[in-house]
Amino acid sequence: MLPRTYFLAFLVLLALLPHVLYPVFLMQLLCMALFACAFNLLLGYTGLLSFGHAAFLGGSAFIAGQAAKVWELPIELSILAGTLTGTLLGVGFGLIAIRKQGIYFAMITLALAQMVFFYALKAPFTGGEDGLQSIPRSNLFGIIDLTHEVTMYYFILALFLAGFLIIFRIIHSPFGQILKSIRENEDRAISLGYRVDRYKLAAFIISAALSGLAGSMKAMVSQVVSLSDVHWSMSGTVVLMTLIGGTGTLFGPIVGAAIIVSMEHYLGEYLGSWVTIIMGVIFVICVLTFRQGVVGELEQRLIKRKLPFQSQDSTS
């Protein structure tokens, strides 16, 4: 359940933020937040750890950038092209990886994503080490000028909310319930007659498609796509964002993305490559002591206080 007041407060906050903070930073945050939410649909609600999500983010970012820059498509079609790329990659990865579970699944998605990375490294259109630069921002629907950063922010916010609501709907649908049952006990879900593989594949493709949307948005926001977007450390970053915010919670990935992106943004210039080390330390601490994440812990405390004798469901 999503308490309506919280959600409204969240909306108002998002609408007001660009007048307080730097809009480009916020847009990048929203892109990563959507990416983390899409990833969480898979890890938190289906119980599958993909270590290859960078391929969906980066692959679709490259195609979206290519569409806008070389094919000169309008921005909405470029984003669509990127999202489709993410979806298709998701179908391909999913069909191969879904036969395996747990660690195997993580390793296979990682290897598949590395293939996409090497392709991006070698393929001429990605610009190799330089990446794809100076991607133009065309007018939205041909009329709205997006070169103004605050206007662009509202466009990105609308896309983010659309993605977020899709995930919200999926989680609270019968389909989402089946995904959760697979996470909790796959064998029982099979014995109840569900074709588990199909549900997992569907969740994987949806997650890949939304990651593709996030990647395309990112390409339009920063107007640059670099190889680091497809590199496997990006897959690690999204795991960290989800974990630190709270796996299997609705708002957790957003909080996690906010923490990590702010850290990179504000501390990056002072600390340089220490940021990677700090991220590693946070990773280890999270895994050892803080597995429910910020939102997970908060929810548990609140629920404990309200309903001391009832079972706690951190997913609601």
């Binding site: 750890l49 747990g102 660690i103 993580a106 690690g236 795991v239 974990l243 490559s273 220490w274 990677t276 080390i277 991220m279 590693g280 330390v281 946070i282 990773f283 280890v284 999270c286 895994v287 050892l288 597995r291």
Partner: peptide, 28 residues
């Protein structure tokens, strides 16, 4: 040692973090 009773995935994530730390320190 603290991860043996948890889901295998946590072991992978913890060692991922360790890899970041070790490589980061040497790069630094």
């Amino acid at each position: 040692k603290h991860l043996y009773d948890l889901d295998h995935l946590y072991g992978m994530l913890a060692t991922f973090g360790l890899a970041l730390i070790i490589e980061g320190l040497f790069r630094q």
